[in-house]
Amino acid sequence: MSYALQTLWHERSRYAAGVGAVAFSAVLIALQIGLLLGLFEITSIPVDHTTADIWVGSNGAPSVDIGRPIPTSLIARLDKPGVGMPEFLYLAFAEWKKSDGTSVNCVVEGSPVNPDSAACVTEITPEIRAALAEPMTVVVDRSDMSSDRLGLAGIGSRGKINGKEVRVVGIVSGLKSLAAPWIFCCQTTARELLGVNNPKYVDHSTYLLARCTTKERAAEVVSELRSEYPEMSAYTSEEFSTKTRVYWLLRTKAGLALGYAALLGLLVGSLITAQTLYSATMGSAKEFATLLALGIPRRKIYRMVLAQSFWVGVIGVSLAYPAVWTLSKLAEQAGTRVVLRWEILLGTAAVTLITAMIAGLFALRSVRQIEPMSLLR
């Protein structure tokens, strides 16, 4: 290992391109995956930004925004030890008409607005919750107020949802939508707005939510509900959040496109790394020929080439992480979230090092072709 590092240092100009290729590959992989996860965290906002532990909905609901109405009478099924008072959540697509007469899709979410509500998103402050108690009032995220989204000027602005006029009484941040803007309101307003296209909402809701005494008890209750009532869906909040993100990732064109881009970044980085290390190894052909002529076993040269590939990967990853952190901060300044959890960084390092080692194996082909007599003439 030490000899391989010494060789890399003395031949640093030759291996600089390999280190750069590895660093580029690591940056590309980490940012693509971080961007992918950051985008799809948005899809599960109604789940992640509440304090509920259990979600009950229609059978087979693939994502939080695609639930079908369920009877409110199902509330009795949550009467179990360790489960708090269930709450109704109304969530469905609707039509938002701007003041200029144009329309866009939106997602209406109606929940209890009392201070200790488990279904109301945590970003809505007690003051705004009090304002939402007034019928036909709504809250929107700051990022959705632009003219190409909801076309709102600020608090007090008005629009129409399914033909009924509503007034904005609060603006929040951190609830940016990926597709249709979220519109938050109280249950009374939601029933009024959604009842136009969904008469069943008179005695139905989209979800039943409840808190539990512990996360472990929540998992137990969900297991019991699935066994007792297979005609409905029951999830812990973590399970439903993951299910929603996986659906958007694997079942939508946006998710497939971003996943393909991340895979393409990995392939491009791998090819560049392999070609660079192959060229660097070929550039050392005479040195390797000399070693072979001196009686050094070919297997030791193989080990040295693989060791060089390993250290090229380590150095490249070490250079990539500061660049990843800087670029992620710049992306967040532009309003794009990049998730860089330790699992992503560790996985990026592992994939990059494996790629570098595979590239080293590819470079060994050039070592096998070395004939000392022909190169030392």
Rank of each mutant, 00 (worst) to 15 (best):
Q6V: 04
H10Y: 14
G18Q: 02
A21R: 06
F24Q: 07
F24D: 01
F24H: 01
F24N: 01
S25P: 00
I29L: 06
A30Q: 09
L31T: 07
Q32Y: 05
G34F: 04
G34K: 03
L35P: 03
L36K: 04
L37W: 01
S44V: 06
I45L: 15
H49T: 15
T50P: 09
W55M: 00
N59T: 00
A61V: 05
P62Q: 12
S63E: 07
I70M: 03
S73A: 11
L74Y: 10
R77D: 10
K80N: 09
G82A: 12
V83Q: 07
V83K: 07
M85K: 12
E87V: 09
A94W: 04
K97A: 02
K98S: 11
K98C: 08
V107F: 10
G110D: 10
V113K: 12
P115T: 03
P115M: 10
V121L: 15
E127R: 05
L132G: 02
T137P: 13
V138M: 11
R142I: 08
S143F: 03
M145K: 03
S147G: 05
R149N: 02
G156C: 05
S157I: 05
S157E: 09
R158S: 09
R158K: 14
R158P: 00
G159T: 02
N162R: 04
V169W: 03
G170Y: 05
S173M: 07
L178I: 06
C185V: 11
T188P: 01
R191M: 13
R191Y: 00
E192K: 08
P199Y: 08
P199F: 05
K200L: 12
H204C: 14
S205Y: 02
Y207H: 11
Y207S: 08
Y207E: 12
L209C: 12
R211V: 11
C212F: 06
T213V: 13
K215F: 09
R217S: 04
E238K: 00
E239D: 04
F240K: 11
F240E: 09
S241Q: 02
T242H: 02
Y247P: 02
K253G: 08
G255P: 04
G259W: 11
G259I: 10
G259R: 05
Y260R: 12
A261S: 15
S270A: 15
S270R: 02
I272E: 02
A274V: 09
A274W: 12
L277I: 14
A280N: 10
G283P: 15
G283R: 15
S284C: 14
A285C: 14
K286D: 09
A293C: 11
K300N: 11
I301W: 05
V305M: 08
Q308E: 15
S309G: 15
G313H: 05
G313P: 08
G316C: 07
G316S: 08
V317C: 15
V317I: 14
V317L: 03
A323H: 11
W325Q: 08
A331H: 00
T336P: 00
V338A: 06
R341W: 00
L345K: 01
L346G: 06
T352L: 03
T355I: 14
A356R: 11
I358W: 10
I358H: 07
A359I: 06
A359S: 15
F362R: 11
F362K: 04
F362S: 09
A363L: 14
A363F: 09
L364C: 06
R365C: 06
S366L: 04
S366A: 13
E371C: 06
M373L: 11
S374M: 13
L375P: 07
